[in-house]
Amino acid sequence: MAEITLVDAVNQALAYAMRENENVVLLGEDVGVNGGVFRATNGLQESFGEERVLDTPLSETLIGGVAIGMAAQGLIPVAEIQFMGFAYPTIDQLLNHAARIRNRTRGRLTCPMVLRAPFGGGIGAPEHHCESTEALFAHIPGLRVVIPSSPERAYGLLLAAIRNPDPVVFLEPKRIYRLVKQRVPDDGEALPLDVCFVLRPGDDVSIVSWGAMIHDVVAAADQLALRGISAEIIDVATLKPLDVKTILESVNKTGRCVIVHEAALSGGWGAEIAARVAELGLMSLLAPVKRVTGYDTIMPLFRLEHLYMPSIDRITKAVNAVMEFA
């Protein structure tokens, strides 16, 4: 079996879901003939036809909105927003409609849709193409927010998102779209939603992260291991609803918690995790929770991007700080 990239794994999951269930339809800008600007939908229009792989007008509000109309009629739309930076008009649709239609009709109408969007920095892309605003989506009650960190996770989590009867925002870290390859059997096996994965067990510190940053966290953990520091790595995967239990169990064991994300510090999802650890796990902490994040600045254009993104160095320094504290 050949090894595939994360973006290939997305494609493989979409194709599996479309074969498995004729109600699954794809829509978005350039998803058809062009196969998506990152090729996530490459070849799918050819295989499944123009009706099921629909090129939309350049209308982001519409993309989220028509998916809701389709979903209420029993289709399972997987909508692509080309870049997260263009998703904001359709937050109106997600917040006011997708997330609440089941609740406001007492389950009479439902919204089994997935909204996919590539996000995050680190590839030298133009302005508006690099932000990590997952917390905006994770704040919305009734929405699931899922972020894969590898080809294997992308395949299993995307299948789970498509099979889930509720709306899921599936954010794809584009920095690692082609960074790593893994063998991902096309067996239709989904991974569980709503759980954090313990990526690597450890004893001294819990490093909690998601998406592309996981790879920097792993590299930092490798360096720390050489110095005898054993880091437990938690891949959050489903940001909302948050599996606090797995994080608390880990912190309970290690006594230290470092949270790493690309997004800006204030109100980032790390703040939610830190608050939960403080509320529910204070007595197990040996040191204050530490966050390694982007700054509360406008994400710079790509000449300064590397200074904005949490680096391996910043992660190891943060771990050193909590180790030195106690």
Binding site: L54, T61, L62, G64, G65, V66, A67, I68, G69, M70, A71, A72, Q73, G74, L75, P77, D92, Q93, N96, H97, R104, T105, L109
Partner: peptide
Amino acid sequence: FPACIPVASHCCHATGAAYAF
């Protein structure tokens, strides 16, 4: 559909449902 209060936001739902039809 139930009443839609954020005006015009439901127009998208009508187009989406019609696409399903």
